[in-house]
């Protein structure tokens, strides 16, 4: 079910430097609900930095990130934290699972932090089932394969039904079959109303996703002006 598209997240002339090195320069991007936005670029081009800026995990050196029209810089730590908890679902480049928590508890982590673990337990189980990990709910992360960890991280990102899913190289380190499964799952999310931001250098994923933006040396080029994607063949 496709919902009406509206801007939920926006980067407005955002730049970020680390010391003298500029990683992102005047990047502007609008993220809409029910749509996928794909950012492609080679390693070191600033893709992850852009994603973490959009996720309010980093502060821009200049420019603004607007969340639902509100300038994120003007939000308190509590408001930003609440947004990270409920507005965003982040799939990190590595799974980032807590080794001592079961797969189910890892999925429940955002709910544990929000004090809603009991309430969200059925939803967590349902997500694990959908992602083929229902049998692994009680396992510890070290008992999972890389692909299973990635799917567990995906379940965690979706648990609180966020408005925006930010996925950083979601098919990285996966074999073709598993990468296709993850891609299928991710690319179906906009149909459920999610805004999906994909950062990848996976040619197949980028090709399937569409709406490709190219990030090169910190500069973002819109899809219409994309001459040839800087992608790698799997």
């Amino acid at each position: 079910m496709k919902t009406e598209s509206s801007i939920v997240l926006e980067a407005e002339n955002v730049s970020r430097s680390f010391g003298a090195e500029t990683i992102l320069a005047n990047v502007s991007l609008q993220i809409r609900s029910g749509e996928v936005t794909t950012v492609v670029g080679p390693s070191g081009s600033g893709k992850t930095t852009l994603l973490t800026l959009l996720a309010l995990l980093l502060q821009p050196s200049s420019g603004r990130v607007l969340v639902g029209g509100r300038d994120a810089a003007k939000l308190s730590d509590t408001e930003r934290s609440r947004l990270r908890n409920t507005f965003y679902g982040f799939v990190f480049q590595t799974a980032q699972l807590v080794g001592s928590l079961s797969v189910l508890d890892n999925v429940l982590l955002p709910a544990l932090l929000a004090g809603k673990a009991r309430e969200k337990r059925p939803a967590a189980r349902e997500l694990l089932d959908r992602l083929g990990l229902g049998e692994r709910a009680g396992f510890l992360p070290h008992q999972l394969s890389v692909g299973q960890k990635r799917r567990a991280a995906l379940a965690r990102a979706l648990l609180l039904r966020p408005a925006v899913i930010l996925a950083d190289e979601p098919t990285n380190d996966l074999d073709v079959h598993r990468a296709e499964q993850v891609a299928d799952f991710l690319l179906a999310l906009p149909d459920e109303g999610y805004a999906l931001v994909l950062v990848t250098h996976d040619f197949h994923l980028a090709k399937r996703a569409g709406n490709r933006w190219n990030l090169h040396e910190g500069k973002l080029t819109p899809p219409a002006q994309l001459p040839s994607p800087v992608l790698v063949e799997r």
């Binding site: 995990l57 934290s81 990270r84 932090l113």
Partner: peptide, 15 residues
């Protein structure tokens, strides 16, 4: 790293 993950998933500084 774990604390940073908690922050990323919505833990406040106080939390």
């Amino acid at each position: 790293g774990e604390w940073a993950l908690y922050r990323a998933l919505g833990a406040t500084k106080l939390g």
